[in-house]
Design a protein around this nucleic acid. Sequence first.
RNA 1: GCGAAAGUGGCGGAAUUGGCAGACGCGCUGGACUUAGAAUCCAGUGGGAUCACUCCUGUAGGGGUUCGAGUCCCCUCUUUCGCACCA
Length: 824
Amino acid sequence: MEYPFDIIEKKWQSIWQEKKIFQAVDLSEKTKYYVLSMFPYPSGTLHMGHVSNYSIADAISRFKLMDGYNVMQPMGYDSFGMPAENYAIRHRTHPRLSTDDSIKVMKKQFKMMGFGIDWTREVSTCHPEYYRWGQWLFKRMYEKGLVYRKSSYVNWCNSCKTVLANEQVEEGRCWRCEEPVRQKELEQWFFRITEYAEELLDFSSVINWPERVKIMQTNWIGKSKGTNIHFHLSGSDEIITVFTTRPDTIFGCTFMALPPEHPLVASWLKGQDDNSPIVRFCNKVINEDKIKRTAEETTKEGIFSGHFAINPVNGEKVQIWITNYVLMEYGTGAVMAVPAHDQRDFEFARKYGIPIKIVIQTPAQNLKLEAMTSAYTDPGILVNSEQFNGMKSEESKASITHWMEDNGTGEEAITYRLRDWGISRQRYWGTPIPVIYCQRCGVVLVPDDELPVKLPEQLELGNTTTNPLLSAAEWINTPCPNCGGPARRETDTMDTFVDSSWYFARYTDAQNEKGPFTRKKADYWLPVDQYIGGIEHACMHLLYARFFHKFMRDIGLIGSNEPFARLLTQGMVTKDGAKMSKSKGNVVDPQYILDRFGADTVRVFMLFASPPEKDIEWSDEGVKGAFRFLNRLWRLFAEKIDILQGTENVVVSGSVSDEELDKLRYSTHFTVKKVLDDIERMQYNTAIAAIMEHLNNIYACKNKKLHDVTEKNIFIQSCRVVPQLLYPFAPHLSEELWSLLGYKQLIHNYGIPTYSPEFLEKELVNYVIQIMGRIRGKLEIAADASPAEIEREALSLANVQKHINGKKVKKVIIIPKKLISIVL
RNA sequence: GCGAAAGUGGCGGAAUUGGCAGACGCGCUGGACUUAGAAUCCAGUGGGAUCACUCCUGUAGGGGUUCGAGUCCCCUCUUUCGCACCA
């Protein structure tokens, strides 16, 4: 017989709802605990990844609730974005309709899973009440000089018909549709995230983030220290500044390399014949796929510009080459080439017959120009470097830089790999950018009291060649807020990552109509105590959210430095070793599992299968195992209900003569301690394993005759802790069993279970006996036996004597309560 | 190439501080119950030698430190992830 999970789960879900136990209290006296898992994109129905993610969050949340915290676990929807728009185009419908349908279904499923969510704080980013404040924040950012507009080459996905941020390009392909990304020149809005590059490298305000994520972000920001060196353009007042991390090699610079996008190159090409080799080369490189161009295998190509630069340290004239291997976006967009000590420059110089000059000698002094097959990039001793000859290259970096600072030819510089965040998207289904272009006044921001700029509901979405909002004529044309003259609205919308960069703060005051949230509530709840989500957002959402948080702090909206104090990056749910996906046909629908086995079973399986940060391999048999465990527990209570009921104030102390019951009492206290410890270190798989083990121990005593009140109470207490320990993982069944025991209040009101250390002390302890590191016997002895006694007993064992074999015992090492090691 | 993480039975995984490797679950084998099956309960289950006692062997591979190593150190291999012409 299967336990009636469907009846039990519905029953408790409605009681929880009725008693509003998940409604978090703003500004409560109690200690707050804010649990958040990344909100879902409303994609139709819940998938296993959601189930896993939110099961982890709910386990934490329930445990904290039980432990007396003022817990907030909100939920919302990242409901703007391209899939809904693409779907709408294909089915000639409106994205709002499919989005709303998805949300309805998913919300129902969240409730069926029994997650303890405070639904009064629900947000949906596609609602004007939400994106209004996104627009408001955009304006504040603009006022602070953190938003600007510029024309630039951008990553363009021709399938999604939109621009992608650098973070959204994966191996040269669109992160959504895997279409190869092209370069396109467009006017775009940018957020000056680079302004915060230095602070984003500082993780001192987070309590517990995986090292991996910190490293990924650090690498992504890519700070590098070096020197800016100013070269004069020969025969001109023009100055070209290069950034280098190797100022020690400046005397070895034999040419300079510029990308075709460099403004100086553009000025040289002006008036030149379109068919000239230089113009043709530049056009070819610019239009080349950026990813292909920057791939390591791509051969280095270039063309001599006909111009020369003057090396400021020795006045040498060096050729300026236009090349495909220098990036305009990094550093100063110009490189001093030192072929002897840089592999790229070396290859290039060899190919085009440019001179190579050694300025760093190996410690063995054996570097010879003719013999070089690759650049020498390691440290060494300076040669051919005038007054710096003989210096160690590492030490010379600072000396050369200081010397250049003194004579005004260079200075220390820091460069980041991080670029500003381009947020314009040529799509309909996103937050409108609150900007108006006036013929007379130029760029004008929409006044605060006219926010939100709402998306027009009626428009043609089928036309995929232009930005959809361009077809909303009535919406576009609007009077200028400044002069009242004719003006047009911005038709790009914001990257949806903007919406998700501050939602964690909106939850603290989700229904506020006067602002994004109030400082008081934000400061009460933030930072999020535990954030949970996938590692794939390490350099996207998690970086953007940190940036937004710091910006919101700087304009006085928030007091804290970081949005997420602790971060858990949970693994994927895989099947047959691969991520579940429609294309692979290995998707398991949570709804089916929910109907067949119930929410508690799915939750227990998810948490038991592996530790939360690792991938979970889906197993139908494993789910049945979790179901079997819950049934086994149910049967225990059903069978023993007469003994178990009416059990207020069970106190069991003192010694008990029955050995098995004594062990059961030990198991009870041991398991409570173990589960509390495991929950603390977020090892839910071992916590559940410990509960299973304890249930096995109870089963071993199940049919024993209980002679007196003490024995009976030991048994009762062993059973009673099970629902308490299991509550974070299988809350419905736990609640049901708890009420069966006769308790009138919901289980969390009784707090987390406690254990008594006195029962963890055993009277007899087991020792393993090793002789020269090999196990040769076991010894059970009184816990308070003296070392001499232990040694005597151990040595007296027959198998021990056999292996000592008459040899002299040199030493006996005793590790209390564990091990006796005999050294011969 | 650089950076990071990992490698343990047939499978998922455990071993928290250097102290009984394989907890717990799945699967499998045997038994009980049953007309039979399902379900359940009990027992067993790394490999090998042995009737048994017990012994040998075993945490990707090789070496080392130690009374004792899955755990610490060195080398090699494999896998996964991130970055990748970043000057």
